[in-house]
Design a binder for these strands. Structure first.
Ligand SMILES: [Mn+2]
Length: 237
DNA sequence: ACAAGTACACAAAA
DNA sequence: ATTTTGTGTACTTG
């Protein structure tokens, strides 16, 4: 009886992961996205609840940023998890990854099953409500594997996500390229494939009417730098 | 016509 | 050169 139950549970997992997710392809000049609903509402609800209990976010100085000479609280909460000992530098700060929690490993493996890509790191951003946001930026850190997509899992409140081509920014944008806007649903997965992050900035704008939190997990592959290696960009030193 | 929400250029210093 | 967020102003929507 025990065996039958185990087999049944395994088959359920296999069935879920072996069915190809119905992907939606979003393309523009230099932009390549894939969007899909990875988790059912019920499963996404459970994952959200578990993450709310498990994930520990940065506090104190780690949760502040200096811009234009003024210190601000970062308008969201951040956490970094990944393989033991991994470090990731962004926004001028180096973060040591916490080791994977069971829920994060489960989601990571679900993403791997759906995409065929493996990941050794996840940056978690929690937007408490529609006032929390992130400004336009690219994820173009040098330590990111350039051939691996960034896999963005959304849980909780649906939020708008906006991408703008780098040449369409500024008062006299060099090109007329319309922003690409999409809504990231509860349980969804968005793949940002190369070379998207070279040419397109993305942001999560304020949405005053949103009153519930959203957790975003961006799975990444970080290159392992062997000891004694020279920095890649000697010129900037 | 009003109010609320949204879009976005721009402000300095590292 | 690029990057961070908050703000003023202009615009849109109901
Ligand atoms: Mn990003």
């Amino acid at each position: 009886m025990q065996n039958e139950e185990d087999e049944e549970a395994e088959l359920e997992v296999l069935a879920e992961f072996s069915h190809p997710v119905p992907w939606q392809k979003i393309e523009a000049q230099g932009l390549d996205l894939d969007y899909a609903l990875l988790f059912s509402k019920e499963e996404a609800d459970a994952l959200f609840k578990q993450l709310e209990e498990e994930v520990m976010y940065s506090t104190g100085e780690e949760a502040k940023v200096q811009v234009f000479g003024k210190l601000h609280n970062i308008p969201r909460r951040q956490a970094t998890y990944g393989d033991a000992g991994l470090r990731y530098t962004y926004s001028g700060r180096t973060h040591l990854a916490c080791t994977w929690t069971p829920t994060l490993e489960y989601i990571r493996d679900a993403v791997t099953n759906a995409t065929g890509h493996t990941f050794n790191f996840v940056l978690i951003n929690r937007y408490r409500d529609g006032e929390d946001h992130i400004g336009e930026h690219r994820d173009d850190e040098k330590e990111l594997d350039p051939v691996c997509p960034i896999a963005s899992v959304s849980l909780g409140a649906a939020r708008d996500f906006v991408l703008r081509h780098r040449d369409a920014r500024g008062k006299r944008g060099a090109r007329r390229l319309e922003p690409v806007k999409l809504q990231l649903a509860h349980g969804s997965l968005l793949l940002m494939n190369p070379p998207t992050n070279t040419f397109w900035y993305h942001s999560l704008p304020v949405r005053k009417k949103v009153r519930l939190p959203r957790i975003n997990l961006t799975f990444r592959r970080i290159l392992l730098i062997s000891r004694g290696e020279e920095p890649a960009n000697v010129w900037s030193l």
